[in-house]
Amino acid sequence: MTLASALLAPVLGAGLAIPIEWVIGLGLALFSVGILGVACRRNILIMLLSVEIMLNAANVVLVGFSRMHSEISGQVFVFFSMTVAAAEVAVGLAILIAVYRLRRSIDADDTTQLREIDYGPLPPIKLEGEPSHHAHDDHDDAAEPVGAAGGA
């Protein structure tokens, strides 16, 4: 009985035992992981994910300081930070889709030109085991008569 009490008593509402500096340290480490992702990856998706990691790192630090100062405002700021993250993701993903439509790529290094380049229509979904997708394009045009297409 005493063993279980000792194990569970802190979980069920005891004072804060966690050193604040550990919480801040976790936030810093997460932020540097985010930097790593943004700086070392070229996939825009992963870069957006890394920005999320950095925002979360800020949240961790906010919650930690909120505990340290016994002030609820820190947790309210986390709430705002999440709203900003949601807005950022919505706009970021919209930009990603726009970039993909223009450039056929989500590699950040491919988006170096301001000029709009026409890459033609979007490639159709390609599944493994299927032949190349040129056949689809021809079929979509439907310029040639049905009989000729069947013969070819």
């Binding site: 009985m1 063993l3 279980a4 009490s5 569970l8 008593a9 069920l12």
Partner: peptide
Amino acid sequence: RAGDGSATFGWV
């Protein structure tokens, strides 16, 4: 639970 509200073995 024990008198002070903390968990007992039986409660778990």
